[in-house]
Design a protein around this nucleic acid. Structure first.
Ligand SMILES: [Zn+2]
Ligand SMILES: [Zn+2]
Ligand SMILES: [Zn+2]
Ligand SMILES: [Zn+2]
Lengths: 136, 136
DNA sequence: ATAAACCTTAGAGTAAACCCCAAGGTCAAG
DNA sequence: CTTGACCTTGGGGTTTACTCTAAGGTTTAT
């Protein structure tokens, strides 16, 4: 398989595949005489792994770690894999909490503004942002 | 007030203040003969506005819009302000939903892995990522 | 034989919100 | 008069995951 075919099969760009190679995620095992990258079924499977991991929220750096383990499962433990997964979930939860704080503040602000066409001279959103004390 | 004093009063860096100036958020109204930026109480208040808006989740681009309105309230309406706020909340909610999808997937994965010290040969997280069908 | 479609590399550009550095000018105190 | 704290500009670096371009070489079909 050449890069274009693999890209089409996975619905990613050839640029993405070269990017993954440059960043240690997926290297073709061979090149043609003229230098074209050659991929096999194995690479297709590895890309599936990568894309699924991405879909679950892992960053490329984390996927690299997982791939490392996946390729040589025997030398690694469930403990490691679970640790990475829980670490990630922790990070995701922190982000969610921050965004929910934003959401609450924005709701608080929006609820108090009439949203009318009159001038914003006394808009409660603007005055709340001008005030010194916390919204929450 | 010189830039360092304003920075200290707000607990931000002088770099940040120069950055905001370069990006149209807060321009000192004067310079000393030697070129030093001069700030007043008004700038302090504007920075409070900016920082509070940031705290609520607005991006600098959005804050710029809000500032524009705040500075000339009379020419703008509550409708505009509320629109920006609701738009932002919408965006925040979308991000939350995506992260919650991640969270669910990661929880699903983690729950099924024993996390033990034995080899990862049959780790359910890895096999789930290898499989073709969706986790959710 | 030639055009279309494909491949190669290296390098630049994108978003967001800054941080850090160098080289030099300014200002108050001792 | 010099030290040290402050200020200036301009530029580069950070993070993430790519995308795009240029300039050229290769393959395949007609
Ligand atoms: Zn109103
Ligand atoms: Zn209003
Ligand atoms: Zn296990
Ligand atoms: Zn496991």
């Amino acid at each position: 398989m050449k890069i274009g075919q693999l890209a089409k099969a996975l619905d990613v760009s050839t640029d993405t595949l070269r990017y993954y190679e440059a960043h240690g995620l997926l290297a073709p095992s061979a090149r043609t005489e003229s230098g074209y990258r050659v991929y096999t079924e194995i690479h297709l499977q590895q890309m599936h792994f990568i894309l699924r991991a991405k879909d679950v929220g892992f960053s490329l750096r984390e996927i690299q770690e997982l791939l490392h383990i996946q390729i040589d499962k025997h030398q690694h433990s469930c403990e490691e894999v679970k640790y990475i997964t829980l670490q990630k979930r922790n990070l995701v939860q922190k982000k969610i909490n921050e965004l929910q704080r934003f959401e609450r503040s924005l709701t608080f602000l929006a609820d108090r503004c009439c949203g009318g066409k009159e001038s914003a001279d006394y808009c409660s959103i603007l005055t709340a942002l001008e005030e010194v004390d916390d919204i929450n």
